[in-house]
Simulated scan of single mutants.
Amino acid sequence: MKAIAFVASVFLTAVPLSLPVLAGNEDPLFINLTTDQAHRSTMAIGFSQAQLERGHPLTIFLNDQGILLASKAKADQYQEQQATLRAIMKKGGLVIACPACMKKYGISESDLLEGIKVGNPALTGEALFQDDTKTLSW
């Protein structure tokens, strides 16, 4: 019995207890938005905006069909989403457009909403790999 107690005490002393990791009030949020579907994209952008207003630094990465939301040529189709993206950028949120996706869907840099940045490894990586960043994908 003493041997078991000894092993248990050594184990508990040597192995730190795992505590749940909780999000801080100012942890960055990185949203990977891959859809242009009205309901899903509105949910993603609306959630993003709410977290930005709560104090979380925000990046939205428009990826795959999500890039269509950034096209001025599609303003009629994505009026609500574009208005919210503009509001997010006005409040300091970063919106990044995937350049490969722009090419696939025929969107030029001049067709992007004002303020959207064309992604590159440094820009996207800096946003994605900030300490304590949380990520979500739609």
Rank of each mutant, 00 (worst) to 15 (best):
N25K: 15
T35I: 04
F11D: 01
G93C: 07
L68E: 05
F129G: 01
G66M: 01
Y105Q: 12
K134D: 00
E53A: 14
D132H: 14
S108C: 00
Q51S: 13
V118H: 06
L113P: 02
L94D: 10
E126S: 09
F129A: 02
Q81V: 04
F30S: 03
L123Q: 02
N32Y: 08
A8Q: 12
L22Q: 12
G55F: 09
E26A: 15
M89F: 01
Q77V: 12
Q77M: 07
P16N: 07
G119T: 06
G115Y: 05
I45L: 10
V7G: 06
Q79L: 12
E109M: 00
K117I: 14
H56R: 06
P20M: 08
P16A: 14
L113C: 05
D111Y: 07
K74A: 14
L94T: 15
A5E: 12
A38N: 13
M43Q: 11
I45G: 04
D111N: 13
K103H: 08
L69K: 02
F30T: 00
T13L: 15
L68K: 12
M102D: 02
A50C: 09
Y78P: 04
L136W: 00
R54G: 07
F47E: 05
I4M: 10
P16D: 06
Q65E: 14
R54Y: 07
K72Q: 15
V95E: 01
K117Q: 14
K2E: 09
R40L: 15
